[in-house]
Write a protein that binds this DNA or RNA. Sequence first.
RNA 1: GCGGACAUGGUCUAGUGGUUAUGACAGCAGGUUCCCAACCUGCUAACCCGGGUUCAACUCCCGGUGUCCGCACCA
Length: 577
Amino acid sequence: MRGRSAVMSDRRADRLTSLLRRRGIVLPSFEIYGGVSGLVDYGPVGARIKRKVMDNWIDHWTSHGDIVEVDSPAITPEPVLVASGHVGEFNDLMVECGGCAGAFRADHLLDRTHESPDSLSAEELVSLLASGVQCPTCKESQWSDVMTMDLMFSTRIGAMTGGRKAYMRPETAQGMFMLYPSLFRHFKQRLPFGAIQTGKGYRNEISPRQGMIRLREFNMAELEYFIDPEYPPCPNLDEWDYSMTLVPDPDGEHAGECSMVISEALSIGVVRHPTVAWFLARTMDFLIGVGIDSSKIRFRQHASTEMAHYADDCWDCELLGEHGWVECVGIANRTCHDLLSHEIHSGSKQLRAWRQFDEPRSETRDVLAPDGASIGPAFKERAAEVVEALQGLTELPDDTPFDLQLADGANVRITDEMVTRRTEQVTVHGEWFTPHVIEPAFGIDRIIWHILDHGYTETEKEGEKYSIMRLDSAVSPFDVAVLPLFDKDGMGQIASKVLAQVNSMRGLRGEMDSSKSIGRRYARMDEIGVPWAITVDHRTVEDGSVTVRRRDDQKQIRATVDDVLSNLASGTVESLF
RNA sequence: GCGGACAUGGUCUAGUGGUUAUGACAGCAGGUUCCCAACCUGCUAACCCGGGUUCAACUCCCGGUGUCCGCACCA
């Protein structure tokens, strides 16, 4: 009978995409102006799902106790992204082939002929290419000049000419590094601690494809966990007793997919870092909690060759869906790279942590104690700089006189009467160091796609195609549908009252539908993933009982409104069946 | 970014140099039914954008945008 035409497409991905549009879950943006590739809208239903995924994510991490949420701007001044390595990193040098007009990354073309082509300058690339490198497509060898492909959206801060160059952030992480000093104070100057941030990130992709998988503006959720590398925190991993699918470094000794509990993976060295191991497990928890099919989750360790510029050990969490295995979470040990780089570029001394020694250490060291009476008159206004340079010497010269280099590079001559050589006894209670950071970075849009993909179920009902979105109640757009069997005999009014009760309960949202036949309304709710439907019928008018329908098997039970509501509030509706 | 294909209501689609532009599903109103997309009647609703050719363009041509496929790219 009803040939639902979206269902007639021979590709499941197309039918799913159709449903997402039709039901206001995810749609192309700016469509009445022709649309923009790589930008999507979450519609009235999708925005609810996204909100719940985000809330789940925030709860998941902040419940831990030493992780707090922060929020920083998307507009980021250029120097921040120079320090982080993004300016340049996201400016890949491209060349075009004069034969076939194909575009290529210049360094990739030289992979075979040069050991580290990504370190070459533009000029070097051009001359090496000109020495006879062939186009992989057409075998010609007529290369254009190299040009940069700017993968960040650039802007300026300030409306008038001038102003500071800035970019839309390609990740939220840098905002958290900027807040490190504040976090350090908040946590009473004691590691470990972490900060999370959710928000938009921006990358001007060359050619976004695959719908929600590669977006130009995307929702990220990132965690920066700051640790003392000498005392990496590691909660008891025995708590996680389920196996995880791991794909270790293909160049390492554990190459090849395997499945094991996380504590074993750490003890045999598949996972190298205890804190990273813990994050792998916690990431798994989160994904399962929002309804990702655990058999479609795997963790893939980056080969040393594909490791990002900052990473020491890096795992991708990949999810299996209509687009194959897709990287949805990256868990990287970024070591001290970011904080150290910001310290160097900004000159800030606030990006460190204090490591108290268990026992104070007594150290003896030779110093050249400056004699102010000689240095002052000799160097006048520069005397202070000279004293500082003397105190900063790590290796003392054997003899006087000697040349001393000041901070600005100037040299001064230090003579015997200016300094006294002596041995000092000092007690050291601890030391400053740059914390390491472990970063789990979640691509929320990709995760939502997989939640929808894994939940989308095509079944048959009385010989007809029937689709159900089996969303976990943690992420369903509405917690319950309230349906008057008929909008008469007071059923409509009772339903409105029940809905108001639902909506007045913290964290719960219901949706009422009184349009068309009851079966059709159940079908609509099934398609957007509402797990429960309360139906107000004739008996409700008499005794206040309602029926509760379970989405996943269409089973129904009867209970009092109060029972249903209290079970909804406590997430125990299942117990009624 | 390159090459190819495609672009018609919310969704899936038929079709034409001059049409009142198909049909299905969804949606709305009424009737009917009285717990799973039922049925009946009626209704709403579309030719991606910009140029060109032509008396006349949704239709042909060019450009753009978007989608899909292949190549490249994917920090």
